[in-house]
């Protein structure tokens, strides 16, 4: 088969008026316009499409951006998960081979002394967070916690790990007195200052949830959006964000595909003329990695902004607005 035969056939299909291909199909038709709309057109006669091409499109196309801050922290585990993991660890204590100190520690070193001191204080249990429990002794059956015992909670696990991390023996193998032991620095609290003050402008609030940037405009609270000016959706969204909230944010537009849309139907007169144009707003999804919004000098009349979670948005946005955008919001 010759290499050029396919191209020539395609050209012939377009230019020749052969009876197998109708002239409508031979004209350029994009894949986005379905054949269904093409076949519908002759049935309803030629007047409505002709009218629609004469009159301007009755919708304003708007492009908006849902700027989200991804969660910074892992989720808080369910108490059942904590309890289950603790249970499994104690079963593992019953099933594992014994810990052989001489494999991991050279005799008469500071590390070995430190280790033996800590294990003695734990009552001989090798695991750090399991309390006093011997998986090989005759009391190994007693591996369940009593109701209300806080030993399996994240807090107590953290405390026991921190206690174990502090050095108890100095480099020259001398036991440090209990009052001289330097405790290991605790990790920063998961609840931030902004959470305690309920400062909705800060970005370090609700750190295990996704936050969404909403601005207060003439129409109430909503995501920043503006009418497209002969540009594509993603360019429009970028421009809207830069104009509305300033450039001092490190953001990333996740894709060009809209994740949510809102449609406001136009008000039509009796003769089919448009009295008030409708609105189609398409929202793209953006992520913020650093920086803060700044509404100073924005041309859209935005007066205030907030970083809210999904539940807070539900209270803040109007119900039909929230119904339009809620599908793009993650559970967390």
């Amino acid at each position: 088969m010759a290499a050029s035969s396919r191209g020539s056939r395609a050209f012939r299909g377009i230019f020749s008026s052969s009876p197998t291909i109708c002239s409508r199909c031979a004209t350029t038709r994009f894949y986005s316009a379905t054949a269904a709309t093409e076949t519908k057109a002759p049935v309803t006669d030629a007047s409505p499409p002709a009218a629609s091409t004469k009159t301007p499109y009755p919708y304003d196309i708007r492009s908006g951006l849902v700027l989200t801050r991804p969660p910074l922290l892992t989720r808080t585990l369910h108490p059942f998960e904590n309890a289950y993991f603790f249970y499994q660890k104690r079963l593992e204590e019953r099933l594992n081979t014994p810990f052989i100190t001489s494999i991991y520690f050279k005799p008469d070193t500071a590390a070995q002394l430190d280790w033996s001191l800590k294990v003695q204080e734990r009552g001989g249990t090798v695991a750090k967070e399991l309390g006093t429990y011997h998986g090989k002794s005759s009391n190994a059956w007693d591996d369940e916690l009593k109701v209300g015992d806080q030993l399996s909670s994240q807090e107590s696990v953290l405390n026991s790990l921190l206690k174990d991390a502090a050095a108890r023996v100095s480099d020259d193998a001398e036991v440090i007195a209990p009052e001289d032991v330097v405790p290991v620095e605790r990790p920063v609290e998961r609840l931030s200052e902004a959470d305690k003050k309920n400062d909705v402008r800060r970005l370090d609030r609700q750190m295990e949830r996704t936050l969404y940037l909403v601005v207060k405009g003439p129409d109430g609270w909503g995501f920043p959006a503006d009418v497209l000016k002969d540009e594509n959706l993603h360019e429009g969204a970028k421009r809207v964000l830069d104009q509305a909230a300033g450039v001092n944010m490190n953001t990333w537009l996740v894709g060009r595909v809209p994740v949510a849309h809102l449609v406001q139907e136009p008000v039509m007169g009796k003769n089919g003329e448009v009295q008030k144009k409708g609105r189609k707003t398409f929202f793209l999804k953006g992520r913020i990695m650093a920086g803060q919004a700044d509404l100073k000098g924005n041309p859209f009349g935005y007066t205030d902004f907030k970083w809210l979670t999904r539940e807070e948005l539900e209270k803040e946005l109007s119900p039909e607005y929230f119904r339009g955008v809620r599908n793009m919001m993650a559970d967390r």
Partner: peptide, 22 residues
């Protein structure tokens, strides 16, 4: 590359850089 940040169990000392400038 800034987006390739893991979720952690506890936040950083400065949890969010509010003063980032372009």
């Amino acid at each position: 590359i800034e987006y390739a940040r893991f979720q952690t169990d506890s936040p950083a000392k400065e949890a969010w850089n509010h003063d980032w400038k372009r």
